[in-house]
Design a protein around this nucleic acid. Structure first.
Length: 589
DNA sequence: TCTATATCACCC
DNA sequence: AAACGGGTGATATAGA
């Protein structure tokens, strides 16, 4: 297929002001129509030029490189959303995914002074990015911000025009390889995601400011509160030697990293805290101390945090936003900074056991499908394996259930006997028995998975139903191949869900791998969450025909903040400290 | 001093 | 040789 169905092909390039932190501000846009050889130059908020000069009719397609930048400019200029979008960044990702050197092109990546992402892709296609204008000058101008003189304006517009020119040459090089209908679906996603990025995440800015102001004092305060029971901190730092003494004292045998150090990660602590509850406060503290990096969280004057979600960045096509800049990438306790605006609420809607459901549907394994449909796949697995009676519930057989749960989750990542045994604290024999039960009960899934791997190596690629692909070679790790279909279809499902929700007018503020976060006024929150669930179910059926996945939903209503999942004790301690600081400030004034 | 790699923490 | 998938990021260490 080619572009014959379109009456107009508009190549768009925009320039934005890179600000020291926040979201780039649109400056200007150049649109080139390839069929009629027209060019339109638009300067944002130019009173002499009607912004409506760019009309994108139903029969037009917009071609961009990294659509979110360009489309946010269209939005800022008050122009309507284009009906069809083809994003060459997305297409380049599809075409080269799995090759070794192609993932350095994030829109949020380090600014490399010579090569822009577009320029390096051009180079791959043997095209150079000769520009009539000096790149350094353009960068300096864009960074400086307005007001601009006429000469400066035309420098920036010339730069845009040369970008647009480059994109149209890249299009000619790439077009034969592009699967147009699927590319347009990806474009629809990029368009929807632009809305999401523009919406941003509402932040409790006062609290954020307090945390930033008082972090210096907060850290020792928290350590002082928690350390006396352990004596593992020295000079404000966690000391593994002291921790080792503590463990010896308590008679605890602690897991180690491959290099022999004591493991201090959250998973290890969670596991150990089950057996030794006295460790829980320490675990919480380490988590908070370790992952607090709030300086990169850029919050606009409207109290909303925005960052590039870096779509299609991973081999499975998931988004990969910066964990420092994206509020949902912060350590769990700091999600309490996420707070709906007055009179508003958030909905967190996530797929239940998404990867298990995908595996069940794609593999055609009826036992797995039945387990998914039961509503509690882990318990169902235990029943199917004959380990618990039919009438068992998650309460009556919680121990057995957690064993089978760990097995299901482990299998999805290709976990082996040793790791599973360590994970659930059983013998190798018992772990092997659990895995064997999985292979037996879900033998059709295992047969399918073997087939997937074989086929991937045979054809040199893996592919999803909507055409996301990964190049596979003999070097590709088998476990990557085994997990890829589940994760990639999960990502695809969430892309479609994002499209459906945004196009239905729901304010989606964040995708989180298997979840969407939506926002609405309080009086509409329940309806919005219900509609989100409905559309996410539809999206699951688009990817897995006839096999709807269920969702869970949680509502967060102003003035409440996002839940933190822990017991909240440490968070309460932090709040108490911050309030004290505030009080003393007031007193001294 | 800068860059590349390894290790370890966090997220789903 | 061991074997837990996909990520980002901080930090430490090694090498040019």
């Amino acid at each position: 297929m080619n572009f014959d169905g379109f009456t107009e092909i508009w190549v768009l390039a925009a320039t934005r002001q890179r600000q020291g932190g926040g979201v780039p501000r649109p400056l200007c846009l150049v649109a080139k129509e390839l069929r009629g050889d027209r060019e339109i130059r638009i300067w944002l908020n130019d009173p002499h030029q009607p912004q409506r000069s760019l009309v994108l009719g139903e029969g037009s397609v917009v071609v961009t490189y990294s659509a979110t930048a360009t489309l946010s400019c269209l939005h800022a200029m008050g122009l309507p959303k284009p009906p069809h979008v083809l994003d060459l960044y997305a297409e380049y990702r599809v075409l080269t995914n799995g090759h070794s050197d192609t993932r350095t092109h994030g829109s949020n990546g380090k600014v490399d002074d010579c090569a822009t992402p577009l320029a390096s892709v051009m180079a791959v296609y043997g095209e150079s990015m000769m520009s009539a204008v000096d790149k350094e000058e353009v960068r300096a101008l864009a960074k400086r911000g307005g007001p601009y003189g006429d000469v400066e304006k035309s420098t920036l517009l010339d730069h845009c025009a040369s970008q647009a020119d480059a994109i149209s040459r890249l299009l000619q090089r790439m077009v034969a390889e592009i699967d147009i209908p699927r590319a347009l679906l990806r474009g629809r996603y990029m368009s929807a995601l632009t809305q999401v990025e523009m919406a941003g995440v509402p932040i409790n800015t006062d609290l954020l400011q307090l945390l930033r102001d008082h972090w210096e004092g907060l850290r020792p305060y928290l350590i002082d509160k928690v350390n006396p029971q352990y004596e593992v901190f020295q000079n404000g730092r966690f000391d593994s030697g002291r921790f080792s003494c503590y463990l010896k004292d308590q008679g605890i045998d602690w897991p180690r990293t491959p290099t022999g150090c004591l493991k201090v990660d959250g998973d290890t602590f969670s596991d150990m805290a089950k057996a030794y509850p006295q460790l829980r406060p320490l675990k919480e503290l380490l988590k908070v101390l370790g992952k607090l990096r709030l300086e990169k969280l850029h919050v606009g004057p409207d109290g909303r945090c925005r960052t590039s979600l870096r779509p299609l960045m991973t081999v499975t096509s998931r988004n990969a936003p910066s964990t420092n800049r994206f509020p949902f990438g912060l350590a769990k306790p700091f999600r309490a900074l996420i707070r709906p605006e007055d009179g508003h609420g958030l909905g967190y809607v996530d797929y239940q056991q998404q990867e298990f459901g995908i595996a069940a549907s794609l593999s055609g394994d009826l036992a797995m499908q039945e387990a998914y449909r039961s509503g509690d796949p882990y318990l169902a697995f235990a029943k199917q394996a004959g380990a618990v009676p039919e009438e068992a519930t998650k309460h009556s057989h919680s121990n057995q259930r957690s064993l089978f749960k760990a097995t299901v989750l482990g299998v999805q990542y290709g976990m082996g006997v040793e790791s599973l045994a360590r994970q659930i604290g059983c013998t190798l024999i018992e772990a092997e028995a659990l895995l064997e039960q999985h292979r037996h009960v879900y033998h059709r899934f295992w047969g399918w998975l073997e087939n997937v791997e074989h086929h991937a190596l045979e054809t040199g690629q893996l592919q999803t139903v909507y055409g996301w692909r990964m190049r596979v070679s003999a070097k590709t790790k088998p476990r990557t191949i085994m997990n890829w279909p589940m994760q990639a279809h999960g990502a695809e499902m969430l892309r479609i869900a994002t499209i459906l929700c945004v196009e239905a007018g729901i304010k989606v503020i964040a995708p989180v791998h298997d979840a969407l976060v939506v926002e609405a006024r309080l009086d509409r929150l329940s309806d919005t969450v219900r509609l989100t669930q409905q559309l996410m179910k539809e999206a699951s059926c688009d990817v897995l025909p006839g096999f709807p996945l269920r969702t869970d939903a949680e509502q967060i209503e102003s003035p409440n903040h996002f839940p933190t999942d822990g017991d909240g004790e440490l968070w309460a301690l932090m709040i108490r400290y911050l309030e004290q600081q505030q009080d003393t400030n007031h007193d001294s004034n």
